[in-house]
């Protein structure tokens, strides 16, 4: 496992039940399929977390109460939270497991440090973001092979405090 655990500073645990605000060029709410399709520079905000992408699909369940299951963002995805910003081709925000999985030439910037690789998993509960190159060969989510030169490798730059 080439993933490097990046210990998070004190990023507060993210509340996945906070209200979610969507802002897009076009929103299609398909109630029968319990799905919302958004397109045209989509911006989603939830309590400090912001996801930007070209297209997005939201699956929710409204059996008893409204429960968002999953957010799938595709096309130039940027996830920003606190001082952490990640960008990639595809992102899947799983509300139940409260993790964001990004794939497709992923770049993660936190403060001065950067990390890039095939796949990124942000754990919103603990604030830990881990990048691994394992699936960068063919990112399972989009299916096409990534073209960055060091496929399968993870590279990063860190600034060490001089105190």
């Amino acid at each position: 496992l080439g993933g490097i655990q990046l210990h998070a500073q004190a990023i507060a645990a993210h509340n996945s039940n906070a209200p979610v605000d969507f802002d897009a060029g076009r929103i299609e709410l398909q109630d029968k399929q319990n799905r919302v399709a958004l397109s045209g520079s989509v911006v989603v905000r939830q309590a400090g977390l912001t996801v930007r992408s070209n297209r997005m699909l939201v699956n929710y369940s409204d059996a008893g109460t409204l429960q968002i299951q999953r957010l799938t963002a595709t096309g130039g995805v940027q996830v920003t939270r606190g001082n952490e910003a990640a960008s990639g081709d595809v992102a899947v925000y799983d509300f139940n497991r409260r993790i964001i999985t990004m794939a497709g030439n992923v770049r993660l910037r936190r403060g001065g440090d950067t990390l890039s690789g095939g796949r990124l998993v942000i754990d919103l509960r603990s604030g830990v973001s881990s990048v691994d190159g394992r699936a960068s060969g063919s990112s399972s989510v989009t299916g096409e092979t990534t073209t960055d030169s060091n496929t399968g490798r993870v590279s990063g730059t860190f600034s060490v405090p001089e105190n």
Binding site: V20, D21, F22, Q30, D62, L66
Partner: peptide, 28 residues
């Protein structure tokens, strides 16, 4: 949104032009 088209039988709400949607999980 600026524009809206709702198909009542298929229950599809199509919003166009700076469409905004606010979902509050946990409360129907």
């Amino acid at each position: 949104a600026d524009r809206l088209e709702v198909d009542l039988s298929e229950r599809i709400v199509a919003l166009d032009g700076n469409a905004k949607l606010r979902m509050v999980p946990g409360k129907l």
